[in-house]
């Protein structure tokens, strides 16, 4: 039995590895198409990307043209482009001239801080609210939590963020509306994301709690004569956590999308902000780099969620 569960875990990891390859392929092909679509001389552009605009000269562009074989068939060029991607050779930013990988290393760190803080905040809000709503299912605290969740889910993250800025920065003057450095700048963007996450997860916590409390196995654990502590901790919490942890996979999508928006709104120098700016500037190496890293992080965290689910729920491990 143990062997088959291990095999299933292996299959699960293989699936996520395939997803990572797909992400890289998709991002690479789209970026390649993007670079071909840009107006102007491509060789010049790539030379600028490699050596930086300051060192750029006509000969450098010719060298690039010859080296990359830009006069060669499209398929060969694409293969070369993807080959560089596989080696994580992402080139230099067309705007700053710095290697994309160096910029990404810094920005990704900032974004992970933001996302991690947002996730922690959302758990801190969603679990107590969900539990209170579950305990009072159908009565006013539950309805109030439901109404709040429905309203929050109908707001785009940028509007939630705007309302928070107006409240905490303009009226109360407690927190800065933008910037970066200390926890004070981190709080509003993280809270914006956390509210969006908690709008959904508080309901899942609530539903899960109601379902477990009504389940025959929960009732039977009591009837067996187990102390209430064991009933709740061993039979209640673990089963109740399964849908909540599974939801994390879905919440990651929201988190990735939210990071892009919220970083733009709060001028937070993370990877989402960089992606939006790269799109404005048509800085293809940066577009490719940011999208690739965001996609790969998305896959990696999803894999962790898979493993957590499999550890919590033997049925998923064996599927």
């Amino acid at each position: 039995m143990a062997i088959s569960i291990q095999r299933q875990t292996g299959r699960l990891l293989a699936g996520r590895a395939m997803q990572a390859v797909t992400v890289a392929g998709l991002v690479g092909v789209l970026s390649f198409a993007l670079v071909r679509m840009l107006p102007g001389d491509m060789a010049l552009r790539i030379a600028a990307s490699r050596y930086g605009p300051d060192l750029l000269s006509g000969t450098a562009a010719d060298d690039v043209r010859a080296e990359l074989g830009l006069d060669q068939p499209l398929a060969l060029q694409l293969a070369d482009w993807l080959g560089r991607l596989v080696r994580f050779d992402l080139g230099n930013s067309l705007v700053s001239g710095q290697p994309v990988i160096d910029e990404l290393a810094v920005q990704l760190g900032y974004s992970l801080w933001l996302a991690g803080f947002a996730l922690a905040l959302s758990v801190a809000m969603a679990v107590p609210i969900g539990l209170i709503a579950g305990l009072s299912a159908g009565r006013w605290p539950d309805r109030a939590a439901l109404t709040g969740a429905i309203l929050l889910r109908a707001l785009p993250a940028f509007v939630t963020g705007l309302c928070l800025i107006i409240l905490f920065s303009v009226w109360l003057g407690w927190l800065p509306p933008a910037g970066f450095g200390t926890w004070r700048e981190l709080t509003l963007p993280a809270l914006t994301l956390a509210l969006g996450l908690a709008a959904l997860s508080s309901r899942v916590v609530r539903d899960s709690m109601v379902a477990v409390a009504a389940s025959p196995y929960f009732a039977f654990a009591r009837v067996k004569g187990l102390p209430e502590r064991t009933v709740v901790m061993r039979h209640g919490l673990r089963n109740g956590a399964i849908p909540v942890v599974s939801l994390l996979g879905l919440q990651l999508i929201y988190l990735v999308e939210g990071v892009v928006v919220v970083e733009s709104l709060f001028a937070y120098p993370g990877i989402g902000h960089a992606l939006v700016h790269a799109i404005f500037a048509r800085d293809v190496p940066m577009i490719q780099g940011t999208a690739l890293v965001m996609g790969l992080v998305f896959v990696a965290v999803n894999m962790l969620v898979d493993l957590a689910c499999a550890a919590l729920d033997p049925r998923q491990a064996a599927r």
Partner: peptide, 16 residues
């Protein structure tokens, strides 16, 4: 008092 539950496949904890 002990109870043998109805439909025990639902009454056993699925994660244990």
């Amino acid at each position: 008092i002990g109870l043998l539950p109805q439909e025990p496949w639902l009454a056993l904890d699925p994660t244990m």
